[in-house]
Write a protein that binds this DNA or RNA. Structure first.
Ligand SMILES: Nc1ccn([C@H]2C[C@H](O)[C@@H](COP(=O)(O)OP(=O)(O)OP(=O)(O)O)O2)c(=O)n1
Ligand SMILES: [Mg+2]
Ligand SMILES: [Mg+2]
Length: 1062
DNA sequence: ATCCTCCCCTAC
DNA sequence: TAAGGTAGGGGAGGAT
């Protein structure tokens, strides 16, 4: 165990910098600055600005509301579905476009509620409202709270400064009523009044100062010293006390919010020097809430985990209560307390508020103008000093000279990580990322303070309001850090100085600032300025400044690159001047080499970018991940896919490529040194590209399961799982499809096998321990394709051929649709996830009577269909059904990654991604597919990509299937078969996976007409049932896994990351 | 050449 | 106990 830890420690990459630096020249005392300077500057513009920003944001019908850290997840979609189940998709579609009843309403949910956080979040999202994860007075219009004890609000209305505190039934009832009901009857306060005892308690919690301090109130008069703040610290508080001192009218509520002015009152108030004493919420109170939730959640699981425990898990007790095994809402509860999740999602929350303002849409004219403008470019970099510590410590004056760090754990033996250390602590060598036990070893008197994420959020908000007041070009780097392009705005140092002063006055936290001519130098200057300073690097000083720096001081040079440079005897920036750019590019890559060469000279051409289009959305958990049986992993994937789907929906984007990342305990490594950590792991990732951008949880889950199973790992070794979606497209941004021949072919090819697929899935009920399960349902004869190829029967991989074909977005403007779709499983699983379809609704032509009602087609399923198919569906159903997208590239074979990995076909696309799998001999690792592998290798040149033909062999197509199809489709289908028959058989033409054959067979034995009966049609039900089958693990898969492991062990060339941690 | 895919690296 | 996430940049190598 000790050795294990050593290994981890040695593997851990640590960055050792952040050495405290001396006060910089140009540093200015914040005390000398006056907040009033802003007000004096242009009071009206401030107010105009606030209103403008609010209006901008209000216009954003896209709400980012990233991250579901506060929510319970499990029943979320169920609740939504329950509300909608009767309406069906079309109705929901109408809701999404016409019934944005919560437009302008932004809720924050306090404590445990019914519906849960997650459910409320979904509801708000669906009905045009906003769900805030972190409370901020200026953003929230209503606080939702079920019960008083949970809320810990003792005088809700008073402490919330007029924000209504409303029971969640208000949300539910309003949706049911189709309009926003008055929240008054739902006020929580009424409950309070009905319970005198509680009311008495409430008054005890009242902050007298809040009641007696007339507003506006200049906090400087009341909090000139830290000693005054102590009062606050001693008072009982709740998270609801995170208030702004915003004067509120009695009738504040939705209406006053919707005028758009309320959201940025903070700025105005700040600029007037107003601060509320109760500004900061007590982290202890927050913790209490979190803990109570955690307990509640844990209780439910402990039983189950006990049932599971005992399978040799060395830390079973801990796992039972602190891992995926012991918490059905592990993902959300974990994120709720994760600092890295907080800072990782912060930017999205920021974008949701400033996004439309920061649209970066500077015309080229402007850019050219700026480029040519005579004045020197000026960039300010602002970074809060030891941010997390500073925010918490401002109310703990007794700590402010002592070494303090933020950490979950305060144990000398703890493995909690230091999030931030103040400068006294850094003098002892304490650094962010360190284990607290190591920090305490360096600094025995280190004081540990807990996190207060809502306060960080709030302070960051104030800071950015100030930044935006001074500069129209603000690039948010993180919650405590930003670049400002202040070219042509006067003395940049003066601006930076004022900003620093205002930040301190508004937040009582110090910021440091760097000023220079580009981002690189500004950032380096900030480093020099810290703490609480300002540093300016004049053009003439650049050279001398850079020479002093070590290479790792350059942004972008981390541990790895530093080591590489070191191996070339390049230690300092001045060393980099000695070598040619050619050399650097040869050695480190073109861009990296150029970066090194330029940065070493202080050259940085990057612009201050206000916003950037997101390219990926994902969530991962590498802490507390412990599975005993595949079902554990499955349940985890449900929550993970729900999380990612929610993020996609919240961001109003869909994506096509779904990537699953898995961390697996490295062979021979024991328990991680970090409690519940992932330890030393190998990293794996595999991706699948679906035919059409999706944000559907069902599809994400399906793919995730498939990918996960394809690894065939022993789930007990899995230590981390991540799910990411890329190739994002904005919802509604797709191009229209035009009708075409190919599209009709596509639809046929979709529908026919689809039915079959449904049958198959239904025939393979989930049974995770049944290794024979899949085989039972298979023919023992290889499936003969039209091309005469046979497909091996026993591939476990073929058990999960769920995905639509990978098609490339390359021909985005080429609307011709080649009919190369494969098997599609995507038939409406149920009535969830309907939002998006409605968006594109125009006028829906009445569907042909012999088609299933559109309401039975799952929009999320539709969303994943290839564009050509969608186009055809749309032709039939009208615009409502189809989101346009174009893709006509030949699809990759529709085989599961396992099959692919085994060499079922050799195109690169199908190769699965992680490096371990990529070894040349990787093909041979998995025995079950050996026959196919060999055949595939020998009979097909690598360059030949198997063309996918979704149609099963005509001989196996049950006539009843055809008759069940709409006439027009049937005709097309028949034509298609005819055409294929005529066509010269191409051996790569038809690669029907085994399940497809099965499907066809099963179809034959079933009354196909029946499939279309009922509401929803039977096949919808079948499809639903099929989902679990997807994830079933069987012995065959296991076998593959062990073989894989062996092969992997043999491979010494695996470029697998074995670093503990991330 | 250029694009795409699968990663690693970096920063907060 | 403890909450090791997130997203972009870019290199390597294959496909086109
Ligand atoms: N490994 C890390 C790095 C940062 N953070 C969080 C805590 C920090 O307070 C905040 C901002 O990061 P900074 O790099 O700006 O660090 P600080 O603000 O704490 O210190 P400095 O004064 O050096 O900026 O992000 C974290 O939790 N873990
Ligand atoms: Mg900082
Ligand atoms: Mg920072």
């Amino acid at each position: 165990m000790a050795g294990e830890e050593k290994e981890e420690e040695s593997l851990k990459r640590k960055k050792v910098d952040n050495v405290p630096r001396g006060m910089a020249w140009g540093a200015q005392s914040f005390a000398s600055a006056r907040i009033s300077s802003i007000r004096e500057k242009d009071p009206s513009s401030v107010s105009d600005f606030g209103r403008y920003m609010a209006e901008k944001r209000r216009k954003l019908n896209v709400q980012y509301n990233e991250d579901s850290s506060n929510k319970l997840l499990n029943n979320a979609t169920a609740a939504v579905a329950a509300l909608h189940s009767k309406e069906g998709q079309i109705v929901v579609a109408e809701i999404s476009t016409k019934s944005r009843i919560f437009n302008g309403i932004s809720i924050w949910v306090d404590g445990f509620t019914v519906p849960t956080h997650q459910e409320l979040r979904h509801l708000m999202l669906q009905y045009g409202g906003v769900f805030e994860n972190y409370f901020r007075r200026e953003l929230v219009t209503h606080i939702i709270c079920s019960t008083l004890p949970d809320s810990k609000i003792k005088n809700p209305r008073s402490l919330s400064r007029g924000l209504p505190i409303v029971k969640p039934e208000w949300i539910v009832d309003s949706i049911a009523a189709g309009r926003v009901l008055s929240w008054a009857p739902y006020q929580l306060q009424r409950i309070a009044l009905e319970h005198p005892n509680q009311r008495t308690l409430q008054s005890a919690y009242l902050n007298p100062k809040l009641d007696h301090c007339p507003l506006p109130l200049d906090w400087r008069d009341n909090y000139p010293t830290y000693s005054n703040m102590m009062d606050i610290d001693l008072e009982p508080r709740s998270e609801l006390l995170a208030l702004e001192n915003v004067p509120t009218s009695d009738n504040q509520g939705p209406s006053s919010v919707q005028d758009g002015a309320v959201n940025f009152t903070l700025l105005e108030e700040d600029l007037k020097g107003i601060e509320v004493k109760a500004d900061e919420c007590s982290e202890t109170e927050n913790q209490g809430v979190l803990e109570s939730h955690g307990k509640k959640d844990s209780v439910a699981i402990v039983d189950r985990s006990k049932r599971n425990t005992g399978a040799g898990y060395s830390d079973a007790a801990a796992a039972a209560t602190h891992s995926t095994l012991g918490d059905d809402n592990f993902v959300q509860n974990y994120f709720k307390s994760s600092r890295l999740h907080f800072i990782g999602t912060w930017r999205n929350r920021y974008q949701s508020r400033y996004g439309s303002f920061n649209d970066n849409s500077e015309g080229q004219d402007q850019q050219v103008f700026r480029a040519k403008s005579g004045s020197d470019p000026a960039v300010i970099h602002i970074d809060m000093d030891c941010f997390f510590v500073a925010v918490v410590v401002r109310d703990r004056p007794e700590l402010h000279d002592k070494p303090v760090a933020v950490c979950h754990s305060d144990s000398v033996r703890g493995s909690g990580e230091i999030s931030s250390a103040n400068y006294p602590a850094r003098a002892f060598g304490v650094r962010a990322g360190m284990f607290v036990r190591d920090a305490k070893a360096k600094c025995p008197d280190l004081e540990i303070v807990p996190y207060n994420f809502e306060a960080y959020e709030q302070v960051a908000d104030k800071v950015y309001n100030i930044l935006h007041h001074h500069c129209g070009r603000v690039q948010a780097v993180s919650c405590d850090e930003a670049f400002l392009d202040v070219t042509d705005q006067g003395d940049p140092c003066q601006i930076a100085s004022v900003i620093r002063s205002q930040i301190f006055e508004a937040t009582r936290c110090t910021a440091s600032a760097g000023v220079s001519k580009n981002k690189l130098l500004a950032r380096l200057a900030t480093r020099k300025a810290k703490p609480n300073g300002l540093y300016y690097i004049a053009p003439s000083e650049v050279e001398g400044f850079m020479d002093e720096l070590a290479v790792e001081d350059l942004p972008g040079v981390g541990w790895t690159l530093k080591e590489k440079l070191k191996s070339h005897n390049l230690h300092k920036c001045s060393d980099l001047l000695r070598v040619s750019k050619d050399f650097l590019q040869r050695e480190f890559g073109v861009k990296t080499g150029d970066m090194l060469w330029s940065y070493a000279r202080g050259i940085d051409t990057r612009e201050v970018q206000q916003a950037q289009i997101r390219k990926s959305i994902g969530a991962e958990v590498n802490w507390g991940v412990r599975f005993l049986v595949p079902e554990d992993a499955h349940r985890f994937l449900v929550t993970l896919s729900t999380e990612v789907a929610t993020r996609l929906q919240t961001a109003a984007v869909k994506g096509r490529t779904i990537t699953l990342k898995v961390k697996r305990r490295k062979e021979g490594s024991g328990e991680p040194s970090k409690f519940m950590g992932c330890g030393v792991c190998d990293n794996f990732s595999r991706s699948e590209t679906v035919g059409y951008a999706t944000d559907s949880q069902e599809i994400l889950l399906r793919v995730a399961k498939q990918l996960f199973n394809s690894f065939a790992f022993d789930v007990r070794d899995v230590r981390g799982v991540g799910l990411q979606v890329t190739r994002l497209e904005a919802v509604g941004s797709g191009q229209s499809l035009k009708g075409g021949q190919g599209q009709q072919r596509a639809l046929k090819s979709w529908l026919a096998p689809e039915i079959s697929k449904v049958m198959l899935d239904e025939s393979a009920p989930a049974d995770r321990n049944s290794g024979n399960q899949t085989i039972i349902h298979r023919s023992t004869e290889p499936l003969k394709t039209e091309a005469g190829e046979s497909i091996p029967v026993k591939s476990p991989a073929l058990d999960v051929p769920k995905l639509p074909l990978n098609t490339s977005a390359q021909d985005n403007n080429d609307l011709h649709a080649a009919a190369e779709s494969g098997m599609r499983n995507f038939i409406a699983p149920d009535t969830k996830d309907r939002i998006q379809v409605g968006r594109s609704s125009t006028k829906a032509a009445p569907p042909p009577t012999n088609l299933p009602p559109l309401s039975e087609l799952d929009p999320s399923v539709l969303a994943s269909l290839p564009p050509e198919i969608l186009a055809e569906i749309r032709e039939v159903y009208g615009e409502l059904a189809a989101q346009p997208v174009v893709s006509s590239k030949p699809a990759k074979n529709y085989l599961s990654p396992v099959a692919v990995m085994k060499g079922a076909h050799k195109t690169k696309t199908s190769e699965v991604s992680n490096r371990v799998d990529r070894r040349e001999d990787g093909i041979r690792r998995v025995l079950p597919l050996e026959p196919l592998t060999e055949r595939g290798e020998s009979s097909r040149p690598p360059s030949v990509r198997p063309e996918i033909v979704a149609l099963p062999p005509a001989s196996q197509l049950d006539p009843s299937v055809m008759s069940a199809l709409p006439l027009s489709l049937r005709r097309e289908l028949e034509q298609e078969y005819k055409r294929q028959q005529v066509k010269k058989p191409d051996k790569s033409t038809l690669r029907v996976s085994e399940p497809e054959k099965l499907c066809v067979e099963r179809c034959s034995s079933t009354s196909l007409e029946d499939l279309w009966t009922g509401t929803p049609p039977k096949w919808v039900h079948m499809f639903k049932e099929s989902q679990d089958a997807v994830c079933s693990t069987n012995d065959s898969v296991r076998l593959g896994g062990s073989l894989y492991d062996n092969a992997c062990a043999k491979k010494s060339c695996c470029q697998v990351s074995t670093v503990e941690g991330c």
